[in-house]
Computed example of a mutant assay.
Amino acid sequence: MASSDKSPGPMPPGDGSVPPGKPMTMGQAVVDRGAQIMQSLKPVKQVRQHVCSFAMYSHDMTRQIQTHHFLTRLNQDFLQCAVYDSDDSNARLIGVEYIVSDKIFDTLPAEEQKLWHSHAYEIKSGLWMSPHVQELIQKSELEDLAKTYGKFWCTWQVDRGDRLPLGAPALMVSPQEANLGIVNPELVRKRDDKYKISTEDLKCSRADIVVPEMTNPFADYWKKTYKGFAIDVEPTEIKLRAPFP
């Protein structure tokens, strides 16, 4: 199935907001609780921040979604984010984003750079925000993030009603000041109402954040070419050579 607006086909019956399946049993809850006590879950415990923002599908930027990134910083130049559709306890994992500094991004091949988006506008405009965290606390990090680039693959297109993660991953792009990249004001208003914030006020408070005079020419590829990227799943011959004698 192409990463497109095509319907994935009939959905299983039930509440469209949750995947199909029986309620969790008491026995399963006991097993999960025991595992939680006995296991370290080290990768998950490295998540340090929750950021709320917005993203568009590379192949159809009229499709815009609110995103919730749970960030793990592996070092000062690289972050990895599990992306959910909300910050509720039953949130659905809809994708993953990798974020790198401009130093790393500039070392990537040009064809790879075309899959990445810049974050400068997203930061300056107030669209990227950390719920319940004061601006003063995160100001220095925002200045660093404004110089970064991200690659975001969406694996579960919940906005079209998919009750399961169906089809191929979809490449996402970040909000931009250009026409196609402007976030629907109604989406922003709903986010502001939920967290009792003003995106416009955040934008004003970030006026002094310095952003690069120009982004890498291959990032935000759609702005220069009006072309996006979509993935098709195609049958292919399996490599028949064994990995060992």
Rank of each mutant, 00 (worst) to 15 (best):
I137A: 13
I137R: 08
Q138G: 01
Q138L: 04
K139I: 07
K139G: 04
K139R: 15
K139A: 13
S140I: 09
S140N: 14
E141R: 11
L142H: 08
L142R: 10
L142W: 10
L142C: 09
L142F: 09
E143L: 05
D144K: 14
A146W: 03
A146L: 03
A146G: 07
A146T: 00
A146E: 01
K147T: 08
K147C: 01
K147Y: 04
K147D: 06
T148V: 01
T148W: 01
Y149N: 00
Y149I: 01
G150V: 05
G150T: 11
K151V: 06
K151S: 02
W153T: 07
W153N: 09
W153S: 08
C154R: 04
T155E: 03
T155D: 02
T155K: 02
V158G: 03
V158K: 06
D159K: 08
R160M: 11
R160F: 03
G161M: 13
G161D: 12
D162Q: 12
D162M: 06
D162N: 12
R163C: 09
L164E: 14
L164Y: 03
L164D: 04
L164F: 03
L164P: 01
P165D: 04
G167D: 00
A168G: 02
A168I: 04
A168R: 05
A170M: 14
L171V: 11
L171Y: 05
M172H: 03
V173S: 07
V173P: 03
S174Y: 07
S174N: 13
S174R: 12
S174I: 09
P175M: 14
P175V: 13
P175E: 12
P175D: 14
E177L: 09
A178K: 10
A178Y: 10
N179L: 15
N179F: 13
N179H: 14
L180D: 13
L180P: 06
G181K: 11
G181F: 11
G181I: 08
G181M: 09
I182F: 08
I182T: 07
V183Y: 05
P185G: 02
E186F: 11
L187H: 05
L187N: 01
V188A: 04
V188E: 04
V188M: 11
V188P: 01
R189D: 08
R189C: 05
K190N: 12
K190I: 04
K190T: 10
K190Q: 12
R191S: 14
D192H: 00
D192F: 03
D193A: 03
K194F: 09
K194I: 03
Y195F: 15
K196S: 14
K196W: 10
K196A: 12
I197L: 13
I197V: 15
S198Q: 00
S198V: 00
T199D: 05
E200W: 07
E200N: 10
D201L: 12
D201A: 12
K203D: 02
C204T: 12
C204A: 14
S205N: 12
R206A: 08
D208A: 03
V211H: 02
V211Y: 00
V211K: 02
V211T: 12
